[in-house]
């Protein structure tokens, strides 16, 4: 069980247009003791990144207005210290694009929550 008093584990932004996946990620990461924030599309995600400080960003790739690829490009240019996990249900080509933009980790949908937990812990430890 995560330590409920530990609210300093990290502040994570979840950018995902699928409400079900967004809610699942939010609930799971909150359960693990992370502070979370959510955005329903790429543009909202970029605005939140501009206004707040996050320790990690988890972004879907195919989203309206600005794709996850756009988010990764901007994050790696303006905030290279923030690790990014890209998630996608569109296979190799999308994963390749995310890799080109230097996403720190790429997960295909449906993803393994245990793997997600381990990856989040590893990327936040780097800091």
């Amino acid at each position: 069980m995560p330590n409920k008093d530990d609210t300093s584990r990290g502040n994570i932004l979840i950018v995902e247009d699928d409400a079900e996946v967004r809610s699942m990620l939010n609930d799971y990461l909150t359960f693990l003791g992370y502070k979370t924030d959510v955005a329903a599309d790429g543009l909202e995600g970029l605005n939140k990144i501009k206004e707040n400080r996050y320790d990690l960003v988890i972004t879907d790739i195919a989203m309206p207005y600005v794709s996850g690829i756009g988010i990764i490009s901007i994050l790696k240019r303006d905030h290279p210290e923030i690790p990014v996990i890209a998630i996608t249900g569109y296979g190799y080509h999308a994963e390749e694009l995310a890799q080109e933009k230097n996403a720190d980790f790429i997960m295909g949908k449906p993803f393994d929550v245990q793997k997600l937990k381990e990856t989040v812990e590893r990327l936040l430890k780097k800091d």
Partner: peptide
């Protein structure tokens, strides 16, 4: 590049 990335990703998603 960023504009072409966006076009590429939309196209790739629609193709799939």
């Amino acid at each position: 590049r960023n504009t072409l990335d966006e076009i590429e990703i939309i196209s790739m998603v629609e193709k799939i």
